[in-house]
């Protein structure tokens, strides 16, 4: 499937004109990466916005207590590197391939142009960013509920441990 066709199936892209989706797809580079490839390290700034096309990517976080844990396992159709690119601060987590993966990447310069809401394409792109951020925050809250359930009812969390 063409990348532009795939993008149109993702949340938020319905707010972009068809030709603007083409522009986004043209600006992205599709590559395959081996197992354990590190896309972005915690505390380092993101340089690209990545879209997972095939495979799985583990999102891992070192907390202040020294605990290293999987925050989330990304599935195809999810963007990552977004938080750091959008606010210009270091990444809060590391992103590592869990097996072979195929990823489409958008350079930081293109992302920053798209993230300005003043143009037609930037206007529509806000909803793409919003859809992923909302998905990430909903998942984080779900993990916190899991933690509560673990504390108060003894049920186990479902996320696997991270491998440093």
């Amino acid at each position: 499937m063409l990348l532009s066709q795939y993008l149109r199936t993702l949340p938020g892209f319905q707010f972009l004109e068809a030709e603007d989706v083409e522009h986004v797809a043209t600006a992205m580079r599709v590559e395959s990466f081996p197992d354990r490839h590190l896309f972005l390290a915690q505390d380092k700034p993101a340089r690209e916005l990545h879209l997972l096309l095939e495979g799985r990517v583990n999102v891992c976080h070192y907390g202040p207590s020294g605990r290293y844990h999987t925050v989330k396992t990304l599935v195809p159709g999810e963007f990552f590197g977004l938080l750091s690119l959008a606010d210009g601060k270091p990444s809060v987590a590391s992103y590592t391939a869990a097996g072979e993966v195929k990823v489409a990447s958008l350079p930081q310069s293109a992302f920053l142009l798209l993230y300005q809401p003043g143009s037609r394409i930037g206007c529509g792109f806000q909803y793409v960013v919003a859809a992923q951020l909302a998905r990430d925050l909903a998942h984080r809250h779900s993990m916190l509920r899991n933690l509560l359930a673990q504390i108060y009812t003894g049920s186990r969390q479902v996320q696997p441990p991270c491998q440093p």
Partner: peptide, 30 residues
């Protein structure tokens, strides 16, 4: 979003900034 798309997407941009703040605020364990 249909009647005044620029205004709606500027609001979406503002909401994105708040989502980012909340994601950063909740990344560590309680």
């Amino acid at each position: 979003a249909r009647a005044a798309p620029e205004l709606a997407c500027r609001l979406a941009h503002t909401l994105n900034a708040m989502l980012i703040q909340r994601l950063r605020a909740t990344v560590n364990d309680p």
